Simulated scan of single mutants.
Amino acid sequence: MGRCGLALILALAAAPASAAELRVCADPNNMPFSNAKGEGFENKIVERIAADWGRTLKYTWWAQRRGNVRSTLKAGECDLIPGIGSTVEMVGATRPYYRARYVFVTRADRGLDIASFDDPRLKTLKIGVQMVGDDGSNTPPAHALAKRGIVDNVRGYLIYGDYAEADPQAAIVRAVASGQIDVALVWGPTAEWYAKASPVPLVLTPTPWLDGPQLPMQFDVSMGVRREDNKLRTDLNAWLGAHKADVDAILAGYR
């Protein structure tokens, strides 16, 4: 190898970290988590990471529907997916950076104060539950209701909704506000985000964190990298540990 070739290799090796990219796959229309305008809390957190590491933040926008990990992270389209379940086996999960659970959403003026799946009123009230995917797969609250025989008075709302709309996940919360349904079971961060914009006051009451030994309602949330990417996972864990107060402050801003 000539001197010029060796010099080039040494120059590249010494290139500043700012020359690198932080490649992130995120949902372009999934508030309060992320959107293409960078308004979600996941946007804010990865922006901080990229800035601290001196990297350029590069997004691949992809709806977080079924199959998105295979089509993005595993396909090499990105190196990091924020906001993924800590127990998802398809990825190498970082340390959790927040925990959330499902909540009961009701109108304040109804005074329902439902806090248990065993509340007898659930047998007659109109209930909305979030469903996953076009096949209507059940979320944990839907399973909890079904095992109690509460089925006929339940209406499903797809988690991802209609992506042609600006707020595809808002329908279930808005249905409570308008009186179409009496109570909804909604993932906490989603419920908080849309309840604050409701034209009528809404009450959000956490579900029990566990419904029987096999049905948790509360989950830890991490960032996901490829399982073999130990270097990035280690770096992210270190950052999340060192900047816990900063992350908590960002999350608090989104309630």
Results as ranks from 00 to 15, higher is better:
230 N>F: 03
204 L>V: 10
223 M>D: 02
42 E>L: 13
152 D>N: 15
234 T>F: 02
67 G>S: 04
12 L>Q: 07
32 P>S: 11
136 G>A: 13
138 N>Y: 12
138 N>I: 15
233 R>E: 04
176 V>W: 00
69 V>W: 00
97 Y>H: 04
103 V>H: 08
148 R>K: 11
75 A>D: 03
27 D>M: 04
240 L>I: 11
146 A>T: 13
140 P>F: 07
127 I>Y: 13
199 P>K: 07
59 Y>W: 10
159 I>E: 11
144 A>H: 02
161 G>A: 04
115 A>E: 14
193 W>E: 09
51 A>K: 10
181 I>M: 05
154 V>H: 13
160 Y>K: 15
82 P>A: 00
143 H>K: 15
47 E>H: 07
64 Q>V: 09
200 V>W: 06
58 K>L: 07
249 A>F: 01
232 L>Q: 08
72 T>L: 06
70 R>D: 12
157 Y>P: 05
222 S>T: 08
156 G>E: 06
82 P>V: 09
44 K>M: 10
3 R>Q: 13
153 N>S: 05
49 I>G: 01
166 A>T: 07
66 R>T: 09
191 A>D: 08
153 N>D: 03
123 K>Q: 10
244 K>M: 06
165 E>D: 10
224 G>R: 02
54 G>M: 02
14 A>M: 13
52 D>W: 09
158 L>A: 15
11 A>Q: 12
197 A>Y: 06
195 A>P: 03
50 A>W: 12
134 D>P: 10
